[in-house]
């Protein structure tokens, strides 16, 4: 991972967001833009967004262990994944849609393009969604996903992860990311995780085991907070920017 070619084109905070070109992740090579991103003013178009208007979920959507609708329960280590969605000033983001997807306990996705010989689980779709509550809190019940192989390089395995899609309050807060599990030896050899440029930002992608979330005789608990950009038109105090070289 240390000698991969890393592109200069990044959208947003260079301490946090990956470059579009990260050659160790091969699919970036023909999909990363090569021309500079254009800086533009923030207008009403960016300070609004669809998040507050999208709210159609059912309580069943947040229980991935049963939402296949078969009447059976998914196989695997049952886990609770909960946390808060905050903006970068620490304000909770209430009533916003989270959509998640993940492999099953064996590391297999229910998807026609995933054909490796891991077993499917007829009681597990691997998809879920929920809204944050008024305090920005979300909560899913699911099973711990397995690691799975991919064809990026010889003997490549993705660490166990759950994909998250978050809307937030404006176009600025839109985020798609992945939550990882603590103490996974695959983290340091995963080019997708390592594309995040700083250790602090990578750690932000790893959930914490939380015994207070764990429920006795039922499920292990993980806590993971998500921080999205707030709808602030006014400039914020920021650390020295690599992009402009100007102190905030």
């Amino acid at each position: 991972m240390n000698n991969t070619t890393i592109g200069a084109i990044v959208r947003g905070d260079r301490e946090v967001f990956p470059p579009y070109l990260y050659e160790a992740y091969q699919s970036t090579r023909r999909r990363a833009p090569t021309l500079p991103l254009i800086d533009v003013p923030l207008t009403l178009s960016e300070l609004t967004g669809p998040g507050p208007a999208i709210s159609a979920v059912t309580p069943e959507d947040a229980d991935l262990t049963r939402n296949a609708g078969t009447g059976g329960e998914a196989i695997g280590q049952r886990i609770i994944v909960t946390g808060r969605v905050l903006d970068d000033r620490g304000n909770p983001v209430p009533n916003t849609l989270l959509e998640i997807w993940q492999a099953n306990a064996a590391g297999r996705y229910l998807h026609k393009r995933d054909q490796w010989p891991g077993p499917l689980d007829p009681n597990f779709l691997g998809i879920g969604r929920c809204l944050t509550d008024e305090n920005g809190v979300y909560r899913f019940l699911t099973i711990r996903p397995g690691a799975y192989p991919w064809k990026n390089h010889p003997n490549a395995w993705r660490p166990a992860h759950i994909h998250f899609s978050v809307f937030g309050s404006s176009m600025l807060s839109r985020l798609v990311t992945q939550m990882y599990f603590p103490d996974d030896p695959l983290h340091r050899i995963d080019p997708i995780m390592q594309s995040v440029p700083t250790e602090a930002a990578r750690e932000r992608l790893i959930a914490a085991y939380d015994h207070d979330v764990t429920e006795p005789e039922w499920a292990l608990g993980y806590r993971w907070d998500i921080v999205v950009r707030g709808p602030y038109a006014t400039p914020f105090e920021s650390p020295v920017s690599v992009e402009t070289g100007k102190a905030g």
Binding site: Y25, L175, V227, E237
Partner: peptide, 14 residues
């Protein structure tokens, strides 16, 4: 800016 943002990751193939 009080809080470090959560980084982005690809949507992947699935």
């Amino acid at each position: 800016r009080a809080y470090l943002l959560t980084g982005s990751q690809t949507v992947g193939p699935f």
